[in-house]
Amino acid sequence: MARALINVPAKAKRGEIIEIKTLMAHPMETGFRTGVDGKLVPRDIITQFVCTYNGEVVFSAELFPAITANPFLAFTTIATESGALVFSWTDNHGQTQVQTAPIHVE
């Protein structure tokens, strides 16, 4: 099931700087909150985000508990060639979710 919302222009001109927006469904549980039982709710956060463009890393981020639930990230890249942008979100347990968006460069 799709858990992320990714906005990449379907078409771009070669050399154009395009904006990419991503929203990932994730609670970003800080590990600082206490539950109703008075115990700390264990930390569960995305710690690493990576965006590759035809295999090469163009942008990455290290995230901390201060990043909002359902993390939103926006950044830019130069449209160089047609292909695929691959996004990956890795949590503090080492689980990675991957999603791909195609791009057509004219």
Partner: peptide, 18 residues
């Protein structure tokens, strides 16, 4: 809060989050 790693392929040094 966050550490963003950029490359020349970003084209612009511009990031946004919450």
């Amino acid at each position: 809060v966050a550490i963003f790693t950029l490359t020349p392929r970003c084209g612009r040094a511009s990031v946004a989050s919450r």
